[in-house]
């Protein structure tokens, strides 16, 4: 029995699949490929798959990680090829390898976002946006397990740069906290909606680009 890690992307139409949808799909992709995945023990055994950090619905990613064990050893290249044969559109395994590090070493997450402003974004607004994310504190109200609570998300943003890509589109590149606590990139927009609604985009789309460790090295 061997452990493997698969790095995969989930983009386009697949972005709308929930985490539960994804787990079910993965399970079936293994069966379709004839790969026997190790099951959990217990009354109701299910395939043992561990995902690095669940991805929210509506967010793209090109760096998802999933650990699994196979009952029979296979060459990573072959596993990759077999899995890639039967995915729904938008999911693709990029590489399969033996994991060397634990998911708990993930500290940061590099994300890219597109903010769309239907009436365009001028220099003034771009500067204001820059200034907004540069504030000392960004306290937003968000849903927690016990109702709503206030939190300062500023410490969870390591870096953030903005670039106007088109007259109506701003591209965001940010490094944000991945876990304990994590920052859902959606909150970067929620912060605008709550604190500076005039700067909030009409539409925003995020993509996870890479997991990073505490030294900002890419975690695979």
């Amino acid at each position: 029995m061997s452990s493997y890690r698969a790095e995969f992307s989930k983009t386009g139409t697949a972005r709308y699949m929930s985490h539960l949808d994804l787990m079910r799909t993965m399970q079936r992709v293994f069966i379709r490929g004839g790969l026997s995945i190790k099951h959990t023990q217990g009354f109701n055994p299910h395939p043992h798959m561990v995902f690095a950090l669940p991805l929210s619905v509506g967010c793209d990613s090109v760096c998802e990680l999933m650990d699994f064990e196979l009952l029979d050893d296979e060459a990573p290249e072959k596993i990759k090829a077999v899995l890639n044969k039967t995915f729904p559109d938008g999911i693709k395994v990029l590489s399969v390898y033996k994991p060397e590090r634990k998911f708990k070493d993930i500290v940061w997450l590099a994300v890219e976002g597109q903010y769309e402003y239907d009436s365009g974004i001028d220099d003034e607004k771009l500067d204001a946006l820059e200034a907004f994310y540069g504030r000392e504190q960004i306290i937003i109200t968000r849903k927690t397990k016990r109702g709503f609570g206030d939190a300062d998300i500023r410490p969870n943003i390591y870096s953030l740069t903005l670039k106007r890509e088109a007259p109506d589109t701003v591209r965001i590149d940010a490094v944000i906290a991945a876990q304990n606590p994590s920052l859902n990139p959606e909150h970067l927009v929620n912060a605008l909606r709550q604190l500076a609604p005039e700067l909030a985009p009409d539409f925003a789309l995020f993509k996870r680009k890479a997991f990073l460790d505490k030294d900002l090295h890419i975690f695979k």
Binding site: G12, T13, Y16, V57, F87, P88, D89, G90, F203
Partner: peptide, 24 residues
């Protein structure tokens, strides 16, 4: 994907049912 549709899908319940792309 259609841009207008992409925007809508961020707001509706269970968007996966509106996009197709399923295996087979």
């Amino acid at each position: 994907m259609d841009k207008k549709l992409e925007r809508i899908l961020q707001r509706v319940q269970k968007p996966a049912r509106y996009v197709g792309g399923e295996y087979n």
